[in-house]
Each structure stands twice: as C-alpha cells, then as structure tokens.
Amino acid sequence: MNIFRLLGDLSHLLAIIILLLKIWRTRSCAGVSGKSQILFALVFTTRYLDLFTNFISMYNSAMKLIYLVCSYATVFLMYFKFKATYDSNHDTFRMEFLVVPVGGLAFLVNHDFTPLEILWTFSIYLEAVAILPQLFMISKTGEAETITSHYLFALGSYRALYIVNWVFRFYTEGFFDLIAIVAGCVQTILYCDFFYLYITKVLKGKQLTLPA
C-alpha cells in the first residue's frame, strides 16, 4: 500500500458516500444516471467475487464490502425507493453497447483464461467506461447539480491517483499490470473534459453547465 493508492481509495469511497448521501438526504436522484450506477454495481460484483476466498487484509475486505453495499444501496434507492425522481428520459445511454464489447474484450485480452480472471478483467474494462451514461446524461441535460459534480470529481480523481500509484509501484516494486493501467488511463481520459469544466466553473462557485 502507498499513499497514492490510499488517497485513491479514499477518494473513491468519498465519491460513493457523496452520491448515496445526496440521494438519501434530498430524497431525489435527479441528474444521476441509474445506468452508470448499475454498471458500477456490476463492476464491484464481478471484481470482488474473491472476497471470501482470497483474504488480503482487513482493509481490503472491508472496503470491498463497503463498495458492494453502497453501490447496491444506490441502485436500490434510484430504482425503487426514489424511483419517481429518476430522470429516465435523459438516462438513455444503451448499456449493452458497453457490456457486450467489454465482455468480448475480456475473453480475448486477459492475464489468465480462468473464470475469476476473466470476470476481474471484465470489471476492469467495464469500470473504464461505466461513467459514460452519466457523462452522456449531463451532456443531454446541459448541466449538473453542484453535489453531482463533486461526486464526479472525486470519482475521476480516484483512478487518476491509481495511475500515480502504478507509476510508484513500477519504480519501487517493479510491479505493473498493463490491463489495469491501460483501462485506468482510458477511464481517466474520459473525465478530462469534465475536470476542465469543474476547475474552471464549479471551483469558482458557478453552476456546472455544458456549452449547449
């Protein structure tokens, strides 16, 4: 464990908590893409199947459980409890356009052709593109609530910090995982446009609006 990975995990945890609290306290999931949340729940489910077979540390197991519980709780709030506030008209990205190619790629490019490893690879590739429905929804509505932009900033920062962690691990341990690195770079690049808007607008107290 290194400081970059720890900060990355905490940023990821912060993002998940921000979103869950936003939905719970405002009793509304307006502006949030339910499809992205379903994809994130799928990412954690396919990645953490080894939760009970591979014990790495209390921290690792605890975080996996928290991520799983929070992501399913978010999906539940969006599609059941606060379903009336879910903006399905703007959340129209076709999830199958992501899941099918990612599933195929996981079969073709992986470290080990075993079920657990293919599912792990699937989760890595899927996580890289899981935010697309959310970014697509914001581009359609042309704006995002400030709390939602903070959620996206924390979520985008997590994988950016992981990239720094991978550079650090490469130079200190000689460790690198090309699949995670390539997917992590793609994932972070998808946020660049949003990062620019967040820094130039939200941090100046303005509403996050996309140029129509």
Partner: peptide
Amino acid sequence: DMDEEFHDEL
C-alpha cells in the same frame, strides 16, 4: 508483467 497470484488492489 509479474504473474501475481491474485489482485491485491481494489
């Protein structure tokens, strides 16, 4: 690419 036994990252 170290063929690690399992993935230790979240």
